[in-house]
Write a protein that binds this DNA or RNA. Structure first.
Lengths: 247, 247
DNA sequence: GTAATAGTGTCTCTTAGACAATATGCC
DNA sequence: GGCATATTGTCTAAGAGACACTATTAC
């Protein structure tokens, strides 16, 4: 049933190819992921990652397919999108051998316009606690989500991707706070600022401050490094080596 | 032609799924990659990465397909194998929209038994200079190879995967030398030893030494960390910050 | 004034890298 | 002894983390 014939040399039947996206945002002090309620079998009524079959007539490449899904669901066209991993086996879909190329995206909550996709009854943000949402997900999506969360946490450690979870203008305090929400631990303020400063990934917006019931904070904007990710020379924190001054 | 119908909801035609492997070894002071000469069209007579279509009747999952190819080509069953990236678009194969899930493997030259695969006329090691071999490769395989080399170099920086390029027993000098061959630069001896020592990734084999025209060297073996990769707290060398004591 | 957050400075600790000294085999 | 490589030690510098201090707004 799932074994369409391939035109290649030996005519092996080929698996169905899907693209699924783990879309993260940070909102209300929580890391959240976008999930859609399935309107069709299998797993009718269960929540799942947004995604669908690759459409070879429309999509020039896999990333285009992922970006199409991302725009359909959130309306956000230009944001951080990265291929996560490709899952393929005979068990993950009851209909047979399938391959899912999973991507993960980071969007600023303020820029998202949720629209219900054509075959998704409902698309909603779900809070992440630990390594999961408190729901049974369709297919192996709980597993994919878990690996995406691990990848996100691991990349926060040595790259600057977290800026893509923020609005265009942000304070260093907000930037640090995003780290703290996702990593679930407090960071050192001066280390964080020094690290961000040396990496040259943000620049102050002259004369722009965020005011509130406290000292106004300088607003910054992300300095695009032309596709090149910024890496930090050291991990932001290295377990086993936390020390106190007065033990 | 390439658009077999998928059994899924909207019956989109689905691309062909292939698995390709970049198999690295270090031999004769050089980083090498295994390439096979294609015996069929397209790209008949060109060199290509070992690989082929996923066989959904035989392969339980994508990694099994990759491991099957690896064993067919090298005879090596248990070694380092990691998913690299998934390439999928309409242009990479003249026959139409295809998806290739690329893996990369590290093997010890001493453990390889090259066998010509069934549809590969010739399988041979090719030396890598810079980011390429001196050959025109089939499909987008030059691009895949380049990304695999980058990934390998990048991972040497913060993981211990290079041990998989060595025989079971090796000296620290040999271990360091593998790094130097791949990274194309000399490393500091005491830093290297300190780093390897602290990471606890190798252990001396009591009473076993490698002899030659010099002081005998202690032989070590890799300490398996039960599937967990070992990460180093810092990059092995961070550009822009090289300093000399007497400038 | 107080509360609250912004921003800076100082000290310590870990680890990489430069460089050198010593060790030990074979010839 | 001489050569070549192994192994260890000492010093410096970069950068992370602890902690504390000052700054500036709203109230």
């Amino acid at each position: 049933m799932n074994q369409a014939l391939s035109p290649h040399a030996k005519h092996y039947p080929t698996p169905t190819v899907m693209v699924d996206i783990v879309i993260f945002t940070v909102e209300d002090e929580l890391l959240k992921v976008l999930l859609v309620k399935r309107g069709i079998e299998p797993f009718l009524g269960h929540y799942a990652l947004p995604g669908g079959a690759v459409r070879i007539a429309q999509d020039a490449c896999l990333e285009d397919a992922a970006r199409r899904e991302l725009i359909e669901e959130t309306g956000v066209a230009n944001t951080y999108l990265e291929q996560l991993y490709t899952y393929g086996n005979a068990q993950r879909d009851p209909r047979g051998w399938t391959v899912s190329v999973a991507y993960f995206a980071l969007v600023a909550a303020s820029e998202v316009q949720l629209k219900a996709g054509s075959d998704a009854a409902e698309a909603r943000w779900h809070s992440i606690f630990g390594n999961q949402v408190g729901l049974l997900l369709a297919f192996d999506h709980a597993h994919i989500l878990q690996e995406a969360i691990e990848r996100l946490r691991s990349k926060l450690d040595y790259t600057d991707i977290a800026v893509h979870l923020l609005a265009q203008e942000f304070t260093l305090g907000e930037f640090q706070h995003v780290y703290e929400i996702i990593m679930q631990e407090k960071l050192n303020k001066s280390s964080f600022r020094q690290r961000v400063d040396r990496a040259g990934i943000v620049e102050p917006i002259a004369g722009k401050m965020r005011t509130g019931a406290n000292r106004p904070a300088q607003l910054y904007r992300f300095v695009s490094s032309e596709g090149k990710r910024v890496f930090f020379p050291r991990s932001i924190a290295w377990a086993e080596s936390k020390h106190q001054r007065n033990p």
